[in-house]
C-alpha cells in the first residue's frame, strides 16, 4: 500500500489547522491549569506536523531555504539576546523600585548569558567541523 502523498498547498492548510487546534487546546489547558494537557497537545501537534511533512511531495528543503532559515535564526538570536540582556539589566538595576521583578531580571540576564555560552560552544564545534 503506497503512502498518501501531500502537496505543498495542502500541507500549508493542514499546518495552519493543526496550529489553530493546538492554540485552542493550549488556551483551554492554561485556563484549566492543566500542564499535562498542555504538554501533551504540544507534542501531539509536533508529531502531527512531522508526520505531514514526511508525506510532502517533491523537494521540501534546499540550500536557499537553509540560508533563509540561518539568516532568520541569526536575526532572531541577536534580537532575543539584546532584549533579554537589556531587560534583565534594567530590571536588576531597578530592583529597589520594583522588587517583585528581581527574579525576572535575574532570569532574563541568565538566559541571555546561557544563550551566548551555547552559541559560543556551537560556534567552536562548527568552526572545527568546517576545517578551521
Amino acid at each position: 500500500m503506497g503512502v498518501l502523498k501531500m502537496k505543498q498547498n495542502q500541507f500549508r492548510i493542514i499546518f495552519f489547522l493543526i496550529v489553530m487546534f493546538m492554540g485552542a487546546i493550549l488556551s483551554i489547558a492554561f485556563s484549566m491549569g492543566n500542564p499535562i494537557l498542555a504538554v501533551g497537545i504540544f507534542f501531539a501537534g509536533m508529531a502531527a506536523i512531522y508526520l505531514c511533512k514526511m508525506r510532502l511531495e517533491g523537494v521540501v528543503e534546499d540550500e536557499r531555504i537553509h540560508l533563509v532559515s540561518q539568516k532568520a535564526s541569526w536575526v532572531t538570536f541577536k534580537i532575543l539576546v539584546v532584549i533579554f540582556a537589556i531587560g534583565g539589566a534594567a530590571l536588576l538595576s531597578m530592583r529597589d523600585i520594583y522588587p517583585s521583578y528581581t527574579y525576572l531580571g535575574f532570569f532574563m540576564a541568565y538566559v541571555s548569558c546561557a544563550v551566548l555560552v551555547l552559541y559560543s560552544l556551537f560556534y567552536m564545534y562548527y568552526n572545527r567541523e568546517y576545517g578551521a
Binding site: G58, V59, D62, I65
Partner: peptide, 10 residues
C-alpha cells in the same frame, strides 16, 4: 528544480 533537487522557488 526537480532535476537538480531544489524547490521551484529556488
Amino acid at each position: 528544480a526537480e532535476k537538480v533537487g531544489v524547490t521551484r522557488q529556488t
